[in-house]
Structure formats: structure tokens, C-alpha cells
Design a protein around this nucleic acid. Sequence first.
DNA 1: TTTCTTGCAAAACATTTGCAAATCG
DNA 2: CGATTTGCAAATGTTTTGCAAGAAA
Lengths: 132, 132
Amino acid sequence: MSQQRSLLLTKQRKAVLDMITEADDHPTAAEIIERLNNRGYHFAYGTVYNSLRYLTEAGLVQELHVGDGACHYDRRTDDHCHIVCRQCHAIAEFDLPESAELVQHAGRRSDYEVQAMTLLFEGLCPACAHTA
Amino acid sequence: MSQQRSLLLTKQRKAVLDMITEADDHPTAAEIIERLNNRGYHFAYGTVYNSLRYLTEAGLVQELHVGDGACHYDRRTDDHCHIVCRQCHAIAEFDLPESAELVQHAGRRSDYEVQAMTLLFEGLCPACAHTA
DNA sequence: TTTCTTGCAAAACATTTGCAAATCG
DNA sequence: CGATTTGCAAATGTTTTGCAAGAAA
């Protein structure tokens, strides 16, 4: 998408990017805005959403949908899976090499031109599994 | 979830269920409401959303999230994959037997207790691939 | 009667948009 | 200067909620 565009990192975009890069979780736009506020950055909602779209299209972050209505952001942009805890909604990520060939299989099973794959698991995180 | 609850299919819930069952696509709540209206059913928004949650928990339909902000509903409740067209947003479904063992693999790679898997592909539908 | 469901409207979220002012190149 | 970006507020789209009225067990 934006490989051919020059990468313009404004102060706002850089702050949003840093917030995602330094996070050890997968924050939503609202959480990013809250954390920016805590660090003294008071950007407009529209600006943060703009930045998030820009960073996503630039390939610097990845969107992540886990079905809770909000879009989460991931500093990792390589192929990997996520698992959401059904109880506390914590999100963990891990690699699943066994999934690598699935895109080819899907291409054979579907009449679509397959371009990308999202692999999302649900279950219980260690803490919640323990108390359940 | 609801195996132990009795299944109470009110007129509203039945109409919503029928609408999903008879659809050959994956309608959102808004689309279901629109189609109900076209058939002379004028239910409150809250009632339709209530029905959808009820039917989902009863295992009669399945929720489907494709990252477009709205929740889609699927008459199929067995394990299968979906693919979304990046251009026209059409959703197709297909079986991918090769994915069956992935839950076990994920259980080994993650410290979560894995309970379910969602496999979503993105790409171009035949029509869009043709015009692209 | 007790419990669950509906209808309606308002509220709650997440996200987008319009437009003027500010900034970048 | 022209193009892009920001800030702000209002609008949009999806889903939830509160509460009174209605239906079912």
C-alpha cells in the first residue's frame, strides 16, 4: 500500500507508534489515547485514529480483531496467532509454524484468491484456568 | 451454556432464526432487522439483539467477526472457515480439514487452555479478482 | 404470581467526517 | 505556494441498557 509513499512520522504518529511498540499488550485506540494522556500527550480522537490507520497502512503495526467490538493494535507485523481468554479477555500471542501451509490449502478449497489469514484461538489463560 | 436451559422460541426469536437460516449470506443485525421489516415484522432493536444473543448461546447460530465493526450471523454452527473479499466484502465459507489438528498444536505452543479456533482468510472473490 | 420477554427510547461505545487552522515540503 | 495533517465537534453505526407493559409458566 504505502511502500511507495514516503514515511512521514509526525510528532503525533511517532507518539502513537511508540505507545504501541512499548506496550506489552494489545491496546485499543481508547487505551492508546488514555496512555498518551498519561504521558502528557493530548491529541484529538480523530488524529489518533488517523495515525493508527496510517501506521497500519505503512506496515509498522498490525490490526487485531478479537470480536470485542474494538480494534486492537499489535507491534508485531509478522505472521503469528493470538489467543483470547474467555474470562479476563487477556490476549496472548504465539507462533504456530503448523499453520504456514494453510493459505495454500485454503486456496485449493475456495474459489477466492487467498491473500491473508487470521488465526485466532479462544480459551482460558493460565490464571483464569486455575481459578475456574 | 444453554444445554441445561429450556429452549424458548418466541415469535420474535423464531423469526430472527428463520431469517438467518434462510439467508444464503451472513447478515448483520442491521440486515436482519431490515429483512424482518420487509416481511412485515417490526421488532424493537433491543429485541432483535436479545434474540441474537439467545440464539447464539443456544447454539442455533454462530457469530462471525470479519473485522468490519459489525457482527455477522451464520446458520452453520459446525467448524468451518470463512474468507472475506477485500473489495466487495462478500463472505464465503468452506471446510478446511487440514485445520483440524491446529487446536492441539496451539495447546502445545501456548500456555492457555485452548477451547476454540477461528480461521479467517482475506482475499478477492472470483468476480473482484476478475475485474482487478 | 413470579419470571422472562418485549417495546421503546436513551445511552454507551467505537469510529468517521467536515472544516478551519496549522504545519510540512 | 500547494498538499498534508491536526484539532475539534458533530455525526454515524453498532450494540447495550433501563424501565414499564405484556406474555408465559
